[in-house]
Design a binder for these strands. Structure first.
Lengths: 336, 336
DNA sequence: TTGAAAGCGCTAACAA
DNA sequence: TTGTTAGCGCTTTCAA
């Protein structure tokens, strides 16, 4: 910038004004400065700008997701980008892989970069470490799971109700032996979904059979194995509820391998690409990733822009999409 | 940091040394400083660090993709993150949506942030605007498409050969009337894939029939429409080659709607989730997104770390995955 | 081993 | 309308 000022024969201040489109600059000077900028290939240094600005704006928001490669989260990410862009901000995204230590490490780093706001899909159970940061003015919104030991906005899926809706759909179809295929038992979302499963059964007076519950199916492979084992038992379930898209896919593979995809009902939590193209189509309780990402980011920018209204917890409703797999009737069994 | 120094009763320099794990600090002082840091909830300001550093390191690399929500690109993104992380860098990712103007705008912005390196999946046809930046030391690697009017490393898929491989597979199966379902005709990758299609036909002495070529199918919906139209013509193709995953999915929908998914062969360029679960399984020419992202990022960091060896163009080979749809035989026709 | 002081590129307050 | 000067939070040079 100094070089530009020297070449244009003006002061730093004038160059700064031209760069920032300050109207109080004479047209001739503006042209001179623009010329010098082009000639020297000058690029303003956003880092220095942020550094000096009184308002501390860094034009950056941080986004911590379990995995940017997860199709659902990738779409959330895109929605966050689009809203952030509309507010003149870029997104620094990181993948946290479900590890509380890593969550903290990544978040500390984003804070060190002085992001204006932080959207966090948390892994840990204690977010009090963010208190100081929140106090000092960084906006924070939680995604997918609510914060613990911290007051902050959150955007959640209706895990409990959504799961219950899916399980009730199977119950209404006449199923009584409905298996629950869950993921990491320690996660809040899985706990919620499991509660929804239990509540739905209870609501219809169906006893919970622990033999039909499988937890900690963290990969599609584990889900496939567990489901195969479940389906080849002497007293198999007549329907499956999969608590997550990856588990749903594992369950489909298992159903195919034991040739029961046409006879055992399946409802999955979360939609996935091509679920409608499978045979049978996969019935799911779907949440809209664009809505999740957009809403979280809009709340974030409202806070950044000074909104001091009470903390909110937004719960997005899941929609049951019937495609066939959830509408399979239980087989008639003589023993009943 | 000043406050920390004051509280610990040492100079700024000493605090800086402790923060940066400089060994030349007495243990007692180190403890004092650490105590003050905790007490004041001090967080180093990475922006200021970058700003002042002689080597100009910003610990950030920029990544421009068409769309971070695209499943293939999302996995590329994750691979980039992982490698960057291993090098102590975060990733500032942006979506460019195939627009040259936007590409340039986003790239300029990343440059303004003084990223250490830039991985670009380009939309435009002229990258000479990056010359000044490259001169001044920013590493640049191109993804998916090579740069134009700029000498820079690139990591590409073997579009031409990969497409030819897929089309040859159909030819070997006895198909002669193979349709080409392409996307934006103006894109380099589509041109390459189309050339591969043409070359494969020519190689087997099959005349190119323009009536079987459909370009500019930019969405799955357009692909579905075009394919339906093609399949319901008087003289329909007996096999389809889809140049992109979204087109493949559109083509599958079309095949289903006219009840020809068991009789018309289909090979797609690029794999997609659950392609193996469809009926029939979808035969594709697949490229590994993790390999693409990792390789590009490793090259980037080699350059950042001073590698001055000649520019390279890495071409990753596609792998034909046979799942059924590409192995359907042409229907026996009396007219032949 | 530690400290004092300069300065990175820019903006903000104030003066002209 | 334009210029001068100070200083953001840190690293670096140089001296103690």
């Amino acid at each position: 910038m100094r070089d530009v000022a020297a070449l244009a024969g003006v002061s730093l201040r004038t160059v700064s004004r031209v760069i920032n489109d300050d109207p109080t600059v004479a047209d001739t000077l503006r042209e001179q400065v623009r010329g010098a900028v082009d000639q020297l290939h000058y690029r303003p240094n956003l880092t220095a700008t942020h550094f000096r600005r009184r308002d501390g704006r860094s034009f950056t928001v941080g986004l911590l997701l379990h995995d940017v490669a997860n199709p659902f989260l990738a779409t959330v990410h895109r929605a966050v980008q689009d809203v952030a862009r509309a507010h003149g901000c870029d997104v620094l995204a990181a993948s946290g892989t479900d590890d509380p230590l890593r969550e903290r490490e990544v978040v500390e780093r984003l804070i060190a970069r002085r992001v204006e706001g932080l959207i966090i899909m948390p892994a840990g159970d204690d977010h009090s470490y963010l208190q100081a940061e929140q106090m000092s003015g960084t906006a924070i919104v939680f995604l997918d799971r609510p914060p613990a030991f911290l007051a902050a906005d959150s955007v959640l899926a209706d895990n409990r109700k959504g799961a219950a809706k899916g399980v009730r759909h199977l119950l209404s179809g006449g199923h009584r032996r409905i298996a629950y295929l869950g993921y990491r038992q320690s996660t809040w979302t899985n706990q919620q979904r499991y509660q929804g499963y239990c509540a739905a059964l209870r609501g219809r007076g169906v006893a919970l059979d622990p033999a039909l519950v499988r937890q900690d199916l963290c990969t599609a492979e584990l889900a496939e194995e567990a489901t195969t084992e479940l389906l080849t038992r002497p007293d198999p379930p007549d329907a499956l509820f999969a608590a997550q898209a990856a588990i749903t896919i594992g369950a489909i593979r298992a159903l195919r391998s034991v040739k029961q995809s046409e006879s055992t009902a399946l409802v999955g939590f979360d939609d996935f690409n091509t679920a409608d193209l499978l045979e049978p189509g996969i019935t799911v309780v779907a949440h809209d990733p664009v809505a999740v990402g957009s809403l979280a980011t809009e709340i974030l920018f409202r806070r950044i822009e000074g909104d001091r209204s009470p903390i909110t917890e937004h719960v997005l409703k899941g929609r049951l999409i019937q495609r066939g797999s959830g509408e399979i009737s239980p087989a008639f069994e003589l023993s009943r």
